[in-house]
Amino acid sequence: MTDAVTTAPVRMSIQRRGLTGLLLVLFPVGLLGWLILYPILNALVTTLTLRTDQGLVLSLDSYASFFSDPYSLNNLALTFWTTAVCAVLLLVICLPIALYLRFSRGPLSAYVQALAIFPLFVPSVILAYALIRTLGPNGLVDILLNAAGLPKLPSPYLTPWGPVIGLVWDNIPLTVLMLTAGLGQVSDNAVEAARDAGARPRHLLLHIILPQIINALLVALAFAVLGIFSSFTLPYVLGPASPEMMGPYMQRTFADLMQPRMAITQAVITFAICAVFGAFYVRSVIRSREVR
């Protein structure tokens, strides 16, 4: 009896606090639903249904059309190729930079960090035109080669390598920052203990550092891949006209060919592929929390 009297106000207080919490998250959750979930559902309904005389019927014809069209498949393949090459290059370029920033003691590391972060402050379109002026036909490289009496090199501009160069440059800051943050979790003592046990730099990297930052590595790559797969500006300005990456392809299908349903289908397919990388990211975050 006494218990019931004393616990009732406590229970009410907990319920009131729970309600306050729900109210606090209501607005962001509502915004999430309106700006993200509703467009996704709308896109799915639009691409999976067809308005006929009998009314709205379920139809996969837009997906069938995409997957039976060699041009669309080539564009998808190019997007996959560009994303994979960029991911590998980002790893190869950013991991050594991040390792240097984490373990170097000298004042030079501050300058290296500033240099690595610099692309973050350059808008994509400026970067694209800077690359054209540097690597494009009659660009700075060509002028220098010509001045030295050397033959011209084939320009990456308007080839699949054009967007690769731009996207890698554009994604270096975020990848370096995320890898450096991940490497921050590897303590100096953990590295010193390994050296004490006889580990050389190669052993340190393979057996101590990489296993401890594997989640950070996956998260950094997932972020980069998500951005690259659905990128528009750099592939549009630097990339080839055919085949083209999914971003410019969607825009052209929508604005030039005026096929909104087909453009939405391309968007849904792009989204579905990105969602797989998103799932990798979520899994990595959950795993790192479990270990902690």
């Binding site: 303590s187 003592n189 953990a190 010193e192 203990a193 390994a194 050296r195 004490d196 046990a197 006889g198 580990a199 050389r200 057996h207 101590i208 296993p211 401890q212 594997i214 270990v291």
Partner: peptide, 28 residues
Amino acid sequence: PERRPTGMVFQSHALWSHMDVFANIAFG
């Protein structure tokens, strides 16, 4: 350090969390 005949025990233990106890000891 990797070629010195010394063994160091750190205040923070400095165990490698991605390995089990056996692997930690067997590493060297």
